[in-house]
């Protein structure tokens, strides 16, 4: 059964001490779409992603992922999560890292080969991660997140440190995965990436300022580019 929404977030609040990280967030992300979480550093993007995978317990509100209320450990086999820093085992080879994440998520050896091909690291599979460049680590980290073919893929600033050429390839891959039914949530503070998303949520101070396709967001702000739109919408809310 395909749920209408891959991720359904209702009235989520989260405070860390005195800091209001999420302040009544409502988001409805459709199955098979590429959704961009856009906002400056410290806007609450990572906290929101962590709330989606159940690593952050909301103070109020509900998070439903693929039709199941979070936290739900079993549901996590359907979720792939690529953290902001390339969280890998530096002493292991590329292949060993991906094999490990495959094993704990119940994926097979063929999936490992497929994931390595997808991120174009199959020729470096025996290289130890500590010897790789930042961009390659990022690709290895992505392979670890998608090796088990999750229905929902969460990517926290996935293209930081990735060269422009590879970034284009990444986005082609994301689109292909989305077309085959995978829902992808990408956080970014790079506006040019936002253009590639089907829908966007502009986030600041833990609140969703505006939501819609890039065109809708521009129209809403009455500007010709997303950067200006963001600044205008952020300014309007702040005042």
């Amino acid at each position: 059964m395909a749920e209408a929404f891959a991720v359904d977030i209702e009235g989520v609040h989260k405070n860390f001490g005195g800091l209001r990280a999420l302040d009544g967030v409502n988001l409805h992300i459709k199955t098979g779409e590429i959704y961009g979480l856009l906002g400056p550093n410290g806007a609450g993007k990572t906290t929101l992603i962590r709330a989606i995978v159940g690593l952050v317990a909301p103070d109020a509100g509900t998070v439903t992922v693929l039709g199941r209320r979070m936290p739900d450990v079993d549901n996590l086999r359907n979720v792939g999560y690529m953290t902001q820093q390339a969280a890998l085992y530096p002493g292991l080879s590329v292949e060993e890292n991906v094999q490990f994440f495959a094993a704990i998520n119940g994926a097979e050896e063929e999936d490992v080969t497929e994931a390595l091909k997808l991120v174009r690291l199959d020729d470096r599979r025996k290289s130890v991660v500590a010897t790789l460049s930042g961009g390659m680590r990022q690709r290895c980290s992505l392979a670890c997140a998608l090796v088990h073919k999750p229905k929902l893929l969460l990517l926290d600033e996935p293209t930081v440190g990735v060269d422009p050429q590879l970034r284009v390839q990444f986005w082609d891959d994301f689109r292909r995965m989305a077309a085959s039914g995978t829902t992808i949530i990408v956080s970014s503070h790079v506006m040019d990436e936002a253009e590639r998303c089907q829908r966007l949520g502009l986030i600041q101070y833990g609140r969703v300022l505006a939501e819609g396709s890039p065109n809708e967001v521009r129209a809403l702000a009455g500007t010709s580019n997303l950067e200006e739109a963001f600044l205008k919408l952020a300014g309007a809310k702040a005042s």
Binding site: V53, L55, L76, T83, A87, L88, F101, N105
Partner: peptide, 14 residues
């Protein structure tokens, strides 16, 4: 500290 524990926690691992 290398962030892999967060990844493990976001997996079906108990």
């Amino acid at each position: 500290s290398q962030g892999t524990l967060e990844r493990l926690m976001a997996s079906p691992l108990r």
